[in-house]
Simulated assay, not measured.
Amino acid sequence: MDEITWEEPFCGEGASCFRLGTDRDGNAYIAIAGEEAHPLTDSRDALRTMILDIKAGKADHLL
């Protein structure tokens, strides 16, 4: 796996903290902070859509 550049963790109130990352090929990753060795991967657009939906309250139960 290419080296992943991780962003600062996003933490919801009373919930786990998640981190987003990208590799040199533009692949996007998401992981629970502290468990970056086992990230989920998908397209950047899929992850962006999921996060925007969560922030918009469409899926707040995920956080």
Rank of each mutant, 00 (worst) to 15 (best):
D53I: 06
G26S: 07
F10H: 10
G12A: 15
D53N: 15
G26P: 11
L40D: 11
P9H: 03
A46Q: 02
A28P: 02
A56H: 08
T49S: 09
F10V: 15
G12F: 13
A28M: 04
G21W: 07
C17K: 04
C11Y: 00
I30T: 10
S43M: 00
C17R: 02
H61D: 07
A15F: 12
R24W: 08
A56R: 09
L40M: 07
G57Q: 14
T49L: 07
C11S: 12
E8C: 07
G21Y: 08
G14C: 09
L63N: 11
T41K: 05
P39H: 09
R44K: 03
Y29C: 01
D53C: 13
C11G: 07
E36D: 06
K55Y: 15
L40K: 04
R48P: 08
G26A: 09
G57F: 13
T49I: 06
T5Y: 09
P39N: 11
R19H: 01
L63Y: 12
L52I: 05
I4K: 00
R19M: 05
H61K: 03
S16I: 15
I4V: 15
G57N: 14
A31S: 14
A46C: 00
D23G: 06
P39W: 04
P39Y: 05
I4L: 04
P9G: 03
G57W: 11
A33Q: 13
P9E: 03
C17A: 12
L63R: 11
R44D: 04
I51E: 07
K55P: 11
I54Q: 07
R48I: 03
R44T: 02
T22S: 15
D60W: 10
L40G: 05
I30V: 15
E13I: 10
L47S: 02
A28I: 01
A46E: 04
A31Q: 11
I30Q: 10
D25H: 05
D23H: 04
L20N: 14
P9R: 02
D60G: 10
A46Y: 01
G21Q: 06
L62Y: 15
H38A: 00
E7V: 08
D45K: 02
E36M: 05
A56G: 14
P9M: 03
A56W: 05
D53T: 10
Y29L: 00
D2W: 02
G14W: 12
I54R: 08
D42E: 03
M1V: 10
K58P: 05
C11F: 00
E7W: 09
M50A: 14
D53Q: 13
E7H: 12
G26N: 07
I4H: 03
P9V: 06
I51R: 09
E8P: 15
T49M: 06
A37N: 00
L62T: 04
A28Q: 04
K58N: 09
I30G: 14
A37K: 00
E35V: 06
A15R: 14
E8R: 14
D2L: 09
E7N: 14
E13C: 05
A59E: 13
C11Q: 13
S16M: 12
T49G: 06
M1F: 05
T49N: 09
P39K: 08
G26F: 08
L47Y: 05
C11E: 12
S16F: 12
E7I: 03
H61N: 02
I30N: 08
C11A: 10
T22P: 14
H61R: 02
R48H: 10
S43W: 02
T22C: 13
R48L: 12
H38G: 00
G14M: 11
Y29E: 01
G34N: 01
H61Y: 08
T22Y: 13
E36Q: 10
